[in-house]
Design a protein around this nucleic acid. Structure first.
Lengths: 295, 295
DNA sequence: CCATGAGTATCAGTATTGCTGATACTCGAT
DNA sequence: ATCGAGTATCAGCAATACTGATACTCATGG
């Protein structure tokens, strides 16, 4: 079970095809076929159905491990590399869209003015990619948001050692069309919204899974899935009545045709956490210290 | 960076020697040397000092990843294997010594009487080994104890997906010699004990790190490290005045020469959690269901 | 300061592995 | 039944990953 073969396996699953995976990896189709065959004899179980190519039950099990394993391998390499490469004057931040609240953007801008020669970059992406970016060294820091009980930490995909601490916390709000019957309410209970029509926008808003966990409910069904990180686009859909979503209360002020109603029950907050490697490199380390001191 | 080389690296660190690691792995010393050299050129960093053989800073970094990676590789294999191998009539439980509280043992005995033909085994071991046993399929279930705030989950080494839920919770008590000046107290505060002499017995009692986390203190220093899982041996040392340790309050009743004083501040409990794979195999699944229903 | 020995690095040789390219096979669609 | 897109198999070659022999290095003791 070597990582090369696992990488091939993942690629085959992603491409639903041996030949396409081969092309993507720069192998011949023959090599891919042999990789899979080798894995299957090694694990003594068929991992893929052929035609259509799809993971079997055993394949699904393997997948659950293969992706984190490969990610962690990259993380290990990046972690060692961080000792050598001192990224002077450059700061890359990966960031989920909801993490750009007034408080966090202010902190970033302040860090830039404190070190004006700093070449900073902000990449907006989904939660998984943000974590991945920090682990593999593509980013120095990540800002990730989510909705949880006030004392709980954000649930993060576990694929390596990362340090996290909260940098800002706001009330969580439901986003409704301004014309919605509930739009005028001063506050709402999450349980009353479990049966509403939601938009599942895992990379642009709070994933519905986090709402379910907070409300301890099986509700929050959705017919519409929104892929991407653009909050404005999501808000247009909400305004048009395609479904509901959530956001930090203050972040919703600039969205047209949208009403943001705070959630008061259960006790839940929108929190942004800063993620960084255990030993961040300068200048990221300084920013981390500054933010931590501000807490 | 293939797993074989990582395994060699870990072995070399564990044995503090290339040749000893080679013997342990069934390689020649030459092969081990080449493995390490290959890793070092690949990562472009020296990983080990020679003579004495010890990990460098980069090596320490790699180690943090290497062990979990190797464990997870085994976990992946075990997880796939669980689909095939149905362990009929056998139930292996890995268990930390402190997890054998009245409540949990009662549950185990009850499970045995409910299924009398069941060939059960209980292996007492440390926390890491217990988690490892479940991940690699050596055990079907694990019972792990620890001391945490009432609402927190136990901190577990993260090397794969495991489901955990609490099965019993008791007050946490300090174990003191019966002759100790504090032995007569009805209750104690953890902060008052931070400067006491402790025994670090990570596999037999609550690790001092968990106490530090709960007390949010840097205290709990120790001069004596106790390796092993035998609680009675530990209690003899405590009775002789070698240092303090902690345990579940009711578990300490049968220890001679020992006084157990409950801790009332901070709010902290001794909790035992049941660990199992995401999809446990029968008959472990039935036991899990029973215990879960009892919650 | 040199001799010694325990331990690591290097090197050549060989067995094995891992890839390619060609070709045979399989299954769904027409 | 035929075709075609896609997967499996096979031989051959290049690269790799071991072993065994030997050179090297460093701490120790005389």
């Amino acid at each position: 079970m070597d990582p090369q073969q696992l990488r091939t396996f993942v690629a085959v699953v992603d491409h639903c095809s041996f030949s396409a995976a081969a092309q993507a990896l720069g192998y011949t189709q023959s090599a891919v076929s042999q990789h899979i065959a080798s894995l299957e004899t090694d694990l003594e179980a068929p991992l893929l159905t052929r035609r259509p190519v799809a993971p079997t039950q055993a394949g699904e099990r393997l997948l659950e491990h293969a992706r984190p394993l490969l990610l962690r391998l990259d993380a290990a390499r990046a972690d060692v590399a961080r000792l050598r490469k001192v990224r002077r004057g450059r700061l890359a931040v990966a960031c989920t869209p909801g993490a750009l609240t007034p408080a966090t953007t202010l902190a970033l801008v302040r860090a830039r003015t404190a070190a004006p020669q700093l070449k900073a970059s902000v990449q907006v992406c989904g939660r998984t990619e943000a974590v991945q970016a920090v682990l593999t060294g593509a980013a120095d820091l990540a800002l990730v948001d989510g909705a949880v009980a006030p004392s709980d930490p954000l649930p993060l995909p576990d694929a390596g050692p990362l340090t996290a601490f909260p940098v800002s916390e706001e009330p969580l709000a439901v986003l409704l069309p301004a014309t919605h019957p509930l739009a005028g309410r001063p506050a709402l209970r999450l349980a009353d919204l479990a049966v509403a029509r939601w938009i599942d926008a895992p990379d642009a808003a709070v994933p519905l899974g986090q709402l379910r966990a907070a409300a301890q409910s099986d509700g929050f069904g959705h017919q519409l899935t929104y892929t991407g990180t653009d909050i404005r686009g999501l808000s247009v859909l909400v305004a048009a009545g395609a479904g509901l979503t959530t956001a930090a209360l203050p972040a919703a002020g600039d969205l047209l045709g949208i009403a943001a109603v705070p959630i008061i029950e259960p006790r839940i907050v929108h929190r942004t956490e800063l993620l960084h490697p255990r030993t961040p490199t300068t200048p990221a380390a300084e920013l981390v210290d500054t933010l931590r001191a501000a807490q």
